[in-house]
């Protein structure tokens, strides 16, 4: 009973480990974060070039 349980655990762990192999998605979201940072800071720069206002 305990041997079967161990095997089941191993299979489940491997299965879980596989589930986290998503390099494509990671690339996509890192590209998202990079574009976000560029766009965001570009806008602060554009704002800084206008008149002063409070």
């Amino acid at each position: 009973m305990s041997d079967e349980k161990k095997v089941a655990d191993i299979i489940r762990d491997e299965h879980n480990a596989e589930e986290h192999h998503t390099p494509g998605t990671m690339t996509l979201v890192l590209a998202l974060l990079a574009s976000f940072a560029v766009y965001y800071f570009a806008n602060w720069k554009a704002l800084a070039d206008t008149w002063h206002v409070r």
């Binding site: 574009s35 976000f36 766009y39 965001y40 806008n43 602060w44 704002l47 206008t50």
Partner: peptide, 19 residues
């Protein structure tokens, strides 16, 4: 994600909204 979210958060920044 790429267009909507990024522009939304940026435009919704208090000071950036001025422009």
């Amino acid at each position: 994600g790429f267009l909507g979210g990024i522009t939304g958060v940026t435009l919704g920044t208090q000071q950036i909204n001025i422009i």
